[in-house]
Design a protein around this nucleic acid. Sequence first.
DNA 1: CGACCGATTGATTCATGTCAACAGCAGTGG
DNA 2: CCACTGCTGTTGACATGAATCAATCGGTCG
Lengths: 258, 258
Amino acid sequence: MDVIAASFDRKGPSIWGANPWVPGNSGHGLRHQLLSDTERARLAAISSIVRFKKGEAVYRAGDRADAIFNIIGGVVKSYCGNGDGRIMAFLFPHDLFGLSEEGAYVNAAQALTAVTAYRLPIAPLRQRFANDALLEYHVICKLCEELRQAERHAFMLGERRADVRIASFLQMLEQLHAANGDAAGEIYVPMNRSDIGEYVGLSLAAVSRTFAGLVRRKVIGIRDRRRIEVIDRAAFERILAGGGARRSSRRRQGRQVR
Amino acid sequence: MDVIAASFDRKGPSIWGANPWVPGNSGHGLRHQLLSDTERARLAAISSIVRFKKGEAVYRAGDRADAIFNIIGGVVKSYCGNGDGRIMAFLFPHDLFGLSEEGAYVNAAQALTAVTAYRLPIAPLRQRFANDALLEYHVICKLCEELRQAERHAFMLGERRADVRIASFLQMLEQLHAANGDAAGEIYVPMNRSDIGEYVGLSLAAVSRTFAGLVRRKVIGIRDRRRIEVIDRAAFERILAGGGARRSSRRRQGRQVR
DNA sequence: CGACCGATTGATTCATGTCAACAGCAGTGG
DNA sequence: CCACTGCTGTTGACATGAATCAATCGGTCG
């Protein structure tokens, strides 16, 4: 990990999200910058910029948690450190990560690509919090969003069929690109098959097989191993919906809400 | 739903949690009251107390989100409203729920038992936020905790074997009791088998079978259908650990952290 | 008592895990 | 330039464990 003084050619830490309490704030779920320029500048003053090489560890589970991170560029995975490599989340630019419990990181984090990030030490950050209610409010917004993301993850894992899980995963990446205003049409998949498996709860073999199946059914196309495009959008949506269709057994209806 | 003016025989909304940045703050993960008496009183001033009968809906997915809730007593489930009944979370006293996206609730919520809760309207709450940095900070702490909880949920769903999932679920309930200082020895299970299934990602039949299996193996004992005790603690831990043991195939080693 | 809901249990099916061989590709070093 | 090695991804054969369908049972409510 390299440490560099926060330079001024960037405005400072950047948090993208949507205010959960403002209706249709920018319409179709588009995220935007939550922080004002002055907030970003103030945060820049207490932070440093760090770089990680591909594959480098950002922190390990149980490490003393003295900072949180804000990604400028690259992709990070947050995973269970205890031998079990299940991945809890993929983190992208404008995301915040490094949550702790009782002062220690609960998960481990590793750079999947080369990563640049702001490192925000806890102590000065808490100082800022105490003086800046708006900043805290924005962090609350971001946390709500991460919570929603974690729920979506759990929702996907509740799905039984492998193709639905993979399709949900692709949709997640696609929506992420869309929310960031990136070019559509092609989905960039920065993580390898094994990491996908750890995230969606399938074996490496099953992930590979499922991709192959979707290609055979002409639902998706794979150029590069990391560039996927949805060919048959209707079939894609049908797969995603397919999850809700089943599990329509006896127990469901009439009881859920009365 | 009944609405009652917030009475003064209670101190006001109550949020339990642990400050994620204070090391071993009360040792073994014990949670405590995050709000001061004056904060609680101020929140009480802007909130009302609501009651829900068993089975009653608190809100539905897509409803205009104009308030969040803080449980005083009872258990609530938060579930996906779109026909698909998967449960995202069980909420207990001192929990906060009612998160929204663009001003609308994303999930539906239903009372599993009779429930009493504070209802905190968003508009005045945001007023209070603007004037009370400490309150916001406490909400951040709570959100971090809920995020962690959602991650644990996803972690459990990543598990393949039914007995591990059920054991994790029981452990979750047990730790919940412990964190609240409730009596140990017996686990109170306020939800029915079907709800458990929706939460842990198993069919109703599989939940039932798995409980039966654990009883047959003398790992747990079932008195009442909602009162379970762990008989063979060692075997119980072994089952929980069993998850991490597998998935040790080729792909894992040497790459996760270098 | 009949109807209904929650729960248990059995028989069968089928998707995914597991094991294993192998192919593509990159990096390394002679 | 070419073996050698290691990692990533693909594919096949087989076993397994949970979903599904369905019958049954106990409790509760009217």
